[in-house]
């Protein structure tokens, strides 16, 4: 469907999006502690939206680099979340054909359950390796904020980046022949 240049362009587009996201969260800002919800994990929303729609348009390498940079900047434990995001991105890719013709709700549920599972594993591994974990309330609020943000991000990817579900069944044949 797309040539190499197209794929390269979209990877670049994703990298620029990730750069802008990180840059805007780095801007000195008013204290967010008064907001009802914490800031959602928009980077993950973008990754999920691209990988659940057109997985071939953003390579895992770009995703891993983006998450690692975010981890470095925001004083997160190094590597763990990146590993989970990588695995989730591969999982999204593998089921993209099964949810392709289903309503958006299914996609949303997939994204929400994947993110919940990732957070659960993340917290468990952190707790097991005796890293101080954030309190449950913050974690749940962050989960809620991220899940609620997902449709907006999908709308953005649809309108701005034209990342729409592939209507051809080509990828379906490919995945089926595994």
């Amino acid at each position: 469907m797309f040539g190499q240049t197209h794929i390269l362009t979209y990877n670049l587009l994703f990298a620029v999006t990730a750069y802008l996201l990180l840059m805007f969260s780095l801007l000195p800002q008013e204290s967010s502690s008064l907001a009802p919800l914490p800031w959602p994990d928009l980077l993950f929303c973008f990754i999920a939206a691209w990988r659940l729609r057109r997985p071939e348009l953003v390579s895992p390498a770009v995703i891993v680099v983006a998450v690692l940079v975010a981890e470095l900047l925001f004083l997160q434990p190094l590597g763990l979340w990146a590993a989970l995001v990588l695995l989730a991105a591969e999982f999204f890719r593998s089921i993209v054909d099964r949810i392709k013709f289903l309503p958006f709700t299914y996609e949303w549920v997939v994204m929400a359950s994947a993110y919940s599972a990732m957070i659960l594993i993340y917290q468990l591994i952190l707790a097991m390796s005796l890293v101080p974990v954030p309190d449950m309330r913050t974690v749940l609020l962050n989960l809620l904020a991220t899940v609620l943000a997902y449709p907006l991000i999908v709308a953005t990817t649809n309108l701005v980046f034209r990342i729409r579900k592939s209507s051809s069944i080509k990828t379906g044949l490919m995945e089926g022949s595994r």
């Binding site: 895992p60 190094l78 590597g79 590993a83």
Partner: peptide, 24 residues
């Protein structure tokens, strides 16, 4: 390419997890 691809993904995930352990 598919098995190769899977291998690369698995190795990268392992590397990242190793990075976490090293960080810890």
């Amino acid at each position: 390419r598919r098995p190769l691809r899977r291998l690369v993904i698995a190795l990268t995930a392992l590397f990242l997890f190793g990075l976490f352990i090293f960080w810890r």
